[in-house]
Design a binder for these strands. Structure first.
Lengths: 207, 207
DNA sequence: GTTTAAGTTAAACGTTTGTTTAATTTTTGA
DNA sequence: TCAAAAATTAAACAAACGTTTAACTTAAAC
């Protein structure tokens, strides 16, 4: 995909929101056009088709996340500090891009459409590689245990964040989080703390 | 919903498979009818509508899971043994019902359709209540730590299992799991062990 | 200022969607 | 055995789908 102009990005943002809310099949080109204030023909004109528009969206978001990961990778921190930072990055990324994740995870699970997810999967792999590098650093330094399945740490973290967002209504009730602010506050504090605690316990067996 | 006859259950099984594969909006009543070998009018005749059919499916599966949980609850085991058994139950349930979970989680995240998820949410709440009871038992016995957010343990477990299934293709490549058998074997051993290890580390800080 | 390209539009295209109808067959109960 | 109920069918319904067309307007280039 070539570089996107402002109007294309605006359309992608609208599409992302609607896809996340109602799914790819549940969102019509007319929905997107109306919400974005454009003519329905513009989708085909700019992106070729509805499916190719989704591919453009995946590429657009994946590139942004890849850059965020790279900046973190070059920071000078201890292994545990770096893992904590990574957890915070995961949480903010899932929160910011939860619409896209919702779409992609759904489409990934049902690979019946032949969409190009490579950009997204590359980011996931970079995630895993980065955690592996950090943990091995900690193991070499003698602060981390060695009998841990490192590759399963990222999905442990991301999985929980996802469960929390997916079952938002239930947890909002359970923890008495009535407003958006209260919900986000819980994520930023309790949920983040729990994840960091879990990782630390798994890797060090001490708090 | 009244009791279901054999034909209704057959239709639900077909619908579950297709919904899980292609999503609710991605599956047409004609798809279901063809795959189930029935006339399209039978869906409306038996269930009222496509949406009500999904509600019947949710109720049908939720009741089965509820019963499984109840049998486990009454077994005489130590707190840690019970948690291990619960992890195994989660893993088998998600594996067996992954199509339904796929549908429900997607529809839960996008509450734009007014579906009745109560049966499903009740099971989730029972999950949490059960874990809370077990952990408190262990805390009273002095084997479990007390500074743990118990309610976040079930979504930690279920979230990971889900991530693993959703990103199946990536993990199959990463762990070199070419066949279905190899993939299932990895879940039954490595993944299960990792989850048990994580929970034990979080609650006891020793292995 | 004129020509070429890019952007934008309303309308129409053929399919497919979920649901309903009315006719017909099968099963049930007395 | 026969009438009532349940099950099943093909056909039709209006509505919505993604995409394309051809006419039109705006912007860019020389």
């Amino acid at each position: 995909m070539h570089t996107l102009n402002e109007k294309q990005i605006h359309i992608l943002h609208v599409a992302e929101k609607l896809f996340g809310e109602k799914g790819f099949d549940g969102t019509s080109v007319r929905n997107i056009a109306k919400e974005a204030g454009i003519n329905i023909a513009m989708v085909s004109y700019y992106f070729g088709s509805k499916e190719k528009m989704l591919e453009s969206l995946i590429l657009y978001r994946s590139n942004a996340t890849k850059m965020e990961l790279d900046t973190l990778a070059h920071q000078d921190l201890s292994p545990l500090e770096k893992l904590d930072k990574l957890v915070e990055l995961y949480i903010s990324r899932v929160h910011k891009n939860r619409c896209l994740y919702q779409i992609v995870h759904f489409e990934l699970a049902n690979n019946h459409r032949d969409l190009d997810f490579n950009a997204f999967i590359e980011v996931k792999k970079r995630n895993v590689a980065m955690v592996e590098q950090i943990v091995k650093q900690g193991q070499d330094a003698g602060v981390f245990r060695k009998d841990v399945n490192i590759a399963l740490i990222p999905p442990t973290v991301i999985g929980l964040i996802f469960q929390f967002h997916t079952n938002r209504e239930m947890y909002a009730e359970m923890f008495n989080l009535k407003s958006d602010a209260a919900f986000n506050h819980y994520i930023k504090n309790e949920l983040t703390a729990h994840i960091k605690q879990t990782i630390k316990a798994l890797l060090t067996h001490e708090v």
